[in-house]
């Protein structure tokens, strides 16, 4: 963990609200990106992010600065989402307000359709495989780190990733949004 982050964690543990605010602000993007991809729904993602950040503030005293703060936040958020799935509190809906950089209306519509298809592909994966895939593909965590975050053996991480990737490729092919010639 970087020294600056270590210092911030130390200050936050002592009750420094400004340090806590900086920690949350610095890690908000990575947390929200992860949860958005995991849930596929901005409303659910917002709830999970809010709850995860609240729990992190409440439990900052228990945080051991061996891992990165973002890894700890992601672990909390994963647990929050898993709890929500168990309690069936998840909104079954795909979002309408994701930003695109399409240059004209036609491109924007096509991009929107592709985006929805890709999101559906990701959402069709079971939660366990989706979590592994999102952590690996979008956030570049090592197998060992994912095993710690999700509290599963490394072998399970590896096999879930392999299955997830094969399933996504097959789904993308079925949906006709697979980009050839990459």
């Amino acid at each position: 963990m970087a020294t600056a982050e270590k210092d911030l964690v130390l200050l936050a543990k002592q009750g420094n609200k400004s340090a806590m605010n900086t920690l949350l602000a610095d890690n908000y993007t990575i947390l929200k990106g992860y949860i958005l991809k995991l849930t596929g729904d901005p409303e659910t993602a917002a709830d999970v992010v809010q709850e995860a950040m609240l729990r992190s503030v409440l439990n900052i005293g228990k945080f051991e600065p061996r891992a990165k703060f973002s890894t700890w936040l992601i672990t909390i958020a994963t647990n929050v989402y898993r709890d929500m799935l168990r309690k069936n509190k998840v909104h079954v809906q795909l979002d309408e307000n994701m930003a695109t950089h399409a240059s004209d209306v036609e491109d924007e519509v096509l991009s929107k359709i592709s985006q929805e298809e890709v999101k559906k592909t990701l959402q069709q994966l079971p939660y366990e495989k989706r979590a592994v895939f999102v952590l690996k593909h979008f956030h570049g965590y090592k197998y060992e780190e994912i095993a710690v975050i999700l509290d599963i053996p490394i072998g399970t991480v590896r096999s879930r990733l392999h299955n997830a990737v094969k399933s996504i490729i097959s789904q993308l092919e079925k949906r006709g949004i697979y980009y050839e010639g990459a």
Binding site: K32, I169, E180
Partner: peptide, 18 residues
């Protein structure tokens, strides 16, 4: 391997949403 690259490219569409 080409399919993996294709998947990577297809998933880039989800990169801008925060």
């Amino acid at each position: 391997e080409a399919k993996l690259e294709g998947m990577n490219e297809a998933l880039e569409i989800l990169e801008q949403e925060i």
